[in-house]
Amino acid sequence: MTIGNLVTLKTDPANTRAAEDGHCLRLQQVNLYYGDFHAVKDVSLDIGARSITAIIGPSGCGKSSMLRLFNRMNDLIPSARVEGLVEFDGVDIYQSGIDVVELRKRVGMVFQKPNPFPMSIYDNVAFGPRRHGIRNKRILDEIVEKSLIQAAIWDEVKDKLGQSGLSISGGQQQRLCIARVLAVEPEVILMDEPCSALDPIATLKIEDLMRILSTNYTIVIVTHNMQQAARVSDMTAFLMVGEDRAGMLVEYAHTNEIFTNPKNKKTEDYITGRFG
């Protein structure tokens, strides 16, 4: 790691999102274990800034576990252990002395099941900024509005900001959760099967939203839905369970290539629906 990388971190990330060679997130020879269980095996890949990367694969292949490497959400599982190098903006995020809270502020996450807090829509979005010390009502109003606009839900909720975040539909809840993440101005948004609990129309809305957001954010999405990966992503990583039940990276390439001209036979089998 060079000093230059450290310096870029302290400057405005809007201008220097990516490290020098253009990648934003990087895995190098990464292994993840839960106790004795080898969940992710020997994965290496680089993810570019301001793009959408889809992680696909059959269920149980370690997609979500891999996603959770990037914001150290696996830390919450006591038996989890990580080997190898995980970099964000050129910084090894598993080295000692890393501020995990700061990391998660910059690498936000949206979950499979919409999980708005049991409080008002406004308070849901303002939650992050408030915790990070913003008290000024005017600034908060501004952040809430901007975030809800970015999450393409403003028009639907602007008249009921005081209502409970649980009172809106599932698709709206998920966009509210995205707004909640946007409100803390992350650089990366990790999405763990964000549409699996939603109906097709709500799914399309989220996908449109992702396309728009990708002009400014790096998005990594785990999905079991291949069409979704094909529709929204720039790059696609295909994961599979090996013989030892550990998840490993089979192929990583431009989405077009993966879906039209996969290099690996297994990828082709999966894409064409022969298994999974």
Binding site: D12, I98, K105, P129, H132, I134, I139, V184, N216
Partner: peptide, 23 residues
């Protein structure tokens, strides 16, 4: 520009490698 920065509120992003003490 759909994404004007609101950084004035949140404050400059701190370094990842030197955690804030949070006393």
């Amino acid at each position: 520009n759909m994404f004007p920065s609101l950084k004035k509120g949140i404050g400059k992003t701190a370094s990842l490698t030197s955690p804030r003490p949070r006393w």
